Amino acid sequence: CHSECLGNCSQPDDPTKCVACRNFYLDGRCVETCPPPYYHFQDWRCVNFSFCQDLHHKCKNSRRQGCHQYVIHNNKCIPECPSGYTMNSSNLLCTPCLGPCPKVCHLLEGEKTIDSVTSAQELRGCTVINGSLIINIRGGNNLAAELEANLGLIEEISGYLKIRRSYALVSLSFFRKLRLIRGETLEIGNYSFYALDNQNLRQLWDWSKHNLTITQGKLFFHYNPKLCLSEIHKMEEVSGTKGRQERNDIALKTNGDQASCENELLKFSYIRTSFDKILLRWEPYWPPDFRDLLGFMLFYKEAPYQNVTEFDGQDACGSNSWTVVDIDPPLRSNDPKSQNHPGWLMRGLKPWTQYAIFVKTLVTFSDERRTYGAKSDIIYVQTDATNPSVPLDPISVSNSSSQIILKWKPPSDPNGNITHYLVFWERQAEDSELFELDYCLKGLKLPSRTWSPPFESEDSQKHNQSEYEDSAGECCSCPKTDSQILKELEESSFRKTFEDYLHNVVFVPRKT
C-alpha cells in the first residue's frame, strides 16, 4: 500500500485506493498535508475557505447554543480562536489581540433580562453583547459592586439597553466600559436606550469621564423622579442622539420631579488639616426662599486615587461607600458681607490618608415646582503625618564578641513616609551569675543571650482551647457569634421535631 494509506488498500502504491488515510483526505486521495488554498479540518480532512465560511455563517444565523462559528488559524479551520487571539470578521482569520481579548457573548432569543446578581454573573467577562440587555433589578445585597464585577467589562451592545423598574439602582456607572450601543435591534418605538419607572436612579454616568455613542435609535425617559433633566440632556449631547427624540420621548413632568437638581456650584473657602482632623468651610448658599434650606450634607471617604465619582458603590438597598454628615444651616444675616460661612470639623480620621470630599445642599421643593440647590466639586484632601507606631517583631542576635545583629519589621501604621529608623542602645553591667558559677561542674549549661522565638506554653494553649472559665478566673470563653447562636437554635429545633416524629412513629394507638 501507499505510504499515506492506513489499515489496508485495494490497489498497491495508489493513494486513492486506501481504506483510511494516515494524515489527511483531499478529493478522494490521501495526502501528507493540505496544500494551499485548503485548510486542515478536524485533523483528517482538507477543506477550502468557502466550506469553513459556510459553517461560520450557519452557526451565526441559527443562534443555536453550542454550535461553533468556525475560524481560520495556522492553516486550520477550527471552532474558535485560541487564547490571546480574536477573529477578523472580513476573512475569519485569528489575529493577536492588542491588550485583553474581546469576548463576544451571543444571547438566546436576542435579549437577556438581568433581574438578579445570579443572572448578571452569566455575563461575567463579556466585552461584546450580541443582542439586547434588559435591566430589571428590584433589590439585593452589595448590588453596585456585584454588577460592576460582572457587567463592568461590557464595551458594546449590538441591540438596545433597557432599564425598567430597577428600584435598587442609583447610577449606571457599573457599566464602566460601555462605549457603544449599535441599535441594530430596537425596542418598540425605535428606541435604543429605554429608561422607565426607576424610582431611585439619580445618575446615568459621570459624563466628564465617560463617552457613549448610540449609532441608531432614540432615547426614552419616563417616570424617573430623581433623575434630573440636565442629566438626560447631557446624554443626548454626548451620545449623538440630540435631535432624534420626539416631543413625548422625554417626559418633562415625570423626570426629576422629586430630585434636588443642583444648578449652582458650592466653593470651599477654608481648608485646614491635622493628622486626624480636617476643618472645612464653604461659601454660604440661600435659595430664593431661605426657609427652603434644610441644611447641608457632607460626604467623605478614603480615596487612594483621584478618580472618585459621587455615586460609586451606591445602591438604593443601603450600600453606600460614603460617610454622610448632616449639618444645620448657619444663622442668616441681613448683611451679605457678614454672612457666616458654614463648615464642619471632621474628626477621627487616619493620618497621612487622602480623602475625597464634597458637600451639597438639602432643600425642600418650592411652590413653583422649581428645584434649587448647590453642590461642590469633589475635592481631595490629605491629612498630615504623625509619629508612626512601633516597629514590629524586633530580633537581636550576637554573632561574635563585638557585634549584635538587630532586625525588625516595619510598623503596622507608618502614618507617613518613613525615611529612617533611630536605634538606641545602652551598655549593661555583666551578670554576677557568670562569676559565681563553678565551671568545672559536669552538665553545666552556660547562660545564653542568643534570641529564641517566643512560644506559647501548654497552660496558655489549654486556656485558649477551654470553653469555660478556669477556677483562677484568668480566662473566659469568647462570646458566641450570631451565626453560632442561630445554628444552635436550628439544631435544637431539629432535635425537638425529630423526637416528636419518633414518638408518633414508635407509639401507635392500640386498636379498641
Rank of each mutant, 00 (worst) to 15 (best):
A356V: 02
G373L: 13
D206Q: 09
A251W: 11
E283H: 12
Q121S: 07
R332Q: 03
L147Q: 00
W282E: 00
P394E: 02
K162R: 08
L252I: 14
R202I: 00
A259N: 05
N150D: 07
V397I: 15
M346I: 14
S319I: 15
A259G: 05
D335N: 13
K409M: 02
V359P: 03
F358L: 02
R370L: 06
N150K: 09
K409E: 15
S260A: 09
A316Y: 13
I379K: 03
D328G: 11
D257F: 05
Q306R: 13
I232A: 08
A145L: 12
N224V: 01
Y285Q: 01
S321V: 15
I357T: 05
P342S: 07
A385H: 08
L108A: 09
S166W: 01
P288S: 05
T113L: 12
L229P: 03
V324P: 09
K112L: 07
T215Q: 10
E184F: 12
G217N: 01
T371R: 09
D115N: 05
P225G: 01
G152I: 00
T113H: 09
I395L: 11
M346N: 01
E237V: 02
R124L: 14
N136L: 15
G125R: 11
T215N: 13
T241M: 14
Q203V: 07
A168P: 15
H106D: 14
D377A: 05
F311L: 05
W322N: 02
K301S: 07
A303F: 08
L186E: 09
S400Y: 14
D335F: 11
Y191E: 09
H210K: 14
P394I: 06
R370N: 15
Y305E: 09
G373W: 13
P287S: 10
L362M: 15
D315P: 15
E155M: 03
G217A: 03
W344S: 07
D393P: 03
L345S: 08
K253S: 10
Q203A: 15
D292G: 04
G243W: 03
G348K: 01
W344T: 12
Y355R: 00
L172A: 07
L108F: 04
R369Q: 10
S269C: 13
P391R: 01
W344N: 12
I250H: 02
K209I: 07
L153P: 12
S398G: 15
S398M: 03
E184R: 05
I250V: 15
T213W: 07
Y300N: 02
V397T: 07
S239G: 05
Q216R: 06
Q245E: 08
K218P: 12
D292T: 04
I379W: 04
E283N: 14
S402L: 12
R202P: 00
K407W: 15
L345H: 03
R182Q: 07
L229K: 08
T353A: 06
S402M: 03
N263I: 12
I154L: 12
L406G: 04
Y223V: 11
G373C: 10
Q245I: 10
S338E: 13
Q203T: 03
T215I: 13
T273D: 02
L169R: 00
I395H: 12
S269R: 15
S274Q: 04
N263Q: 06
D249K: 04
L147V: 14
C261A: 07
K209H: 12
I135A: 03
N387T: 10
A356K: 01
K177P: 01
T185M: 05
L147D: 00
L133E: 00
A144I: 15
I271L: 06
P342E: 07
L252D: 09
A149V: 13
L212K: 01
L180F: 13
Q403I: 02
S401A: 14
Y194R: 10
L196V: 14
D377L: 03
V324A: 11
K350I: 03
I114N: 02
L186A: 03
T323Y: 03
K407T: 03
I163Y: 00
I405H: 05
I188N: 02
H233D: 03
R272F: 07
W207Y: 05
L123K: 01
L362V: 04
A259W: 14
C126K: 01
D315G: 13
Q314L: 10
V238L: 11
K226P: 01
D367N: 04
A356T: 02
N307V: 07
W207D: 08
K209S: 10
T215L: 02
N200A: 04
F175M: 12
N255Y: 03
N255V: 02
L107T: 07
Q199Y: 10
H106M: 11
A120Y: 12
C261Q: 02
T213G: 08
G183A: 04
G131R: 00
T241D: 11
W205V: 03
N200S: 07
F175Q: 00
I271Q: 02
T254M: 11
K234H: 14
L212W: 06
L161M: 08
L180A: 09
S158T: 12
G110W: 06
T364Q: 03
G256P: 03
G343T: 04
L108I: 05
K360S: 11
F311S: 06
P391T: 03
T215M: 11
Q354A: 06
D292N: 03
N141I: 10
S171F: 09
E156P: 00
A195V: 06
F275L: 04
K350V: 04
T213D: 12
Y305C: 15
N142M: 13
G139A: 07
Q199G: 07
V397Q: 08
S260K: 08
S389H: 11
T118I: 05
V104T: 12
N141D: 05
I137G: 12
E156F: 11
G159M: 01
W322H: 05
N190A: 09
V128H: 15
E148T: 06
E155L: 05
Y355M: 02
S239Y: 04
E109Q: 12
I135T: 01
L406T: 05
I188H: 13
L227M: 12
D292F: 13
P411W: 01
K242H: 15
S173L: 11
G125M: 08
R247V: 14
S132P: 04
S274V: 04
F365G: 07
L147I: 05
L172H: 01
K162I: 14
T361A: 09
T371Y: 07
H233N: 03
I134H: 03
N150Y: 05
E246Q: 08
T241V: 08
D115A: 13
S158A: 12
E264Q: 10
N136W: 07
N224M: 06
N255L: 06
K162E: 04
G243F: 13
L266C: 02
K226F: 06
S158Q: 06
W352Q: 04
A195Y: 00
G318V: 05
E236P: 01
E237L: 08
G183T: 01
L133M: 08
Y305H: 05
G110C: 04
V363R: 07
N150S: 13
Q203G: 00
P287T: 09
I250E: 15
E302G: 03
G139V: 13
V381R: 06
S132L: 00
A144Y: 07
N307F: 09
S400P: 04
P342D: 09
L229Q: 14
V324R: 06
Y160C: 14
L133A: 02
M297I: 10
T383I: 01
L133Y: 01
Q339N: 12
G110P: 06
L172V: 08
S333I: 12
S239Q: 08
Q245F: 04
P336L: 05
